[in-house]
Amino acid sequence: MTARLLSYGVLTLVLLFLIGPFLIIVAAALSAGESLAFPPQGLSLRWVFKVFEIESFRESFGLSMALAIFGTLAALLLGVPISYAIARYRLPFGETLRTIVSAPIIVPGIIVGLALLRYLVIPLDVDIVLALFIAHTALVLPYAVRVVSASLENLRSDIEEAAVLLGSSRVGAFFRVVLPNIRGGILAAFILGFVTSFNQVPVSLFLSGPGVRTLPIDMIWYLEITYDPSVAALAALLAFMSIAIVFIAERFLGFSRYV
């Protein structure tokens, strides 16, 4: 009985630790006061509405969305064939390939950002948006490969041979029988990649320049100048967006099976 009480106690503390900051942000977002504070001074939605009026938030939200969508799509375009090659062919350098592809997860974002800035953006004079796109693609790639590989491993390879013997070409077999069966994995990889890219800070920090900022960077920048609750309102909105995406994904494709 005591052990049980204790475990409930610990569980409550852990949940509080995980959800607490989120609750504080939501409360701060609903404040009627002029500055970011907890507990909130009065209740109002004025800061929530204010978020939509701030020009730079609108721009950086657009950039972050575009990066998350197209970066993840690009990562999948690379990641699906890579996963397929690793899963189906005993490549002599398969393990190496896997390691290289996973590198962006292991190497700290700060280093990736600095490296891209120092060796891509500065010497080659690459456009900042393009550099961000490359960086986000590279960052999402490991997740794409991991999730897609997992669903490929659950798929027997002889169904491709069966398709070929029924008259399909090798490439046709991939599109007709492999792709439809890893659809769930690809969708899961897309969602995971999207969220990863959207919330990405350290790499984007190095690659943000005048007028080009992703949303999280823009929020930091905004906070340095204006200490009002609109940042909290935006953070709460973004958190709800992430929750909604994951909830829908879980509901319709059992997201947690894949990640």
Partner: peptide, 29 residues
Amino acid sequence: AANRRQVGLVFQSYALFPHLSVFENVAFG
């Protein structure tokens, strides 16, 4: 090529297409 030989193969694991119905499996070829 294997897809032009007119040779059928019933796999030990059956290798049915999991995403297709019985009808569509048979209709595949």
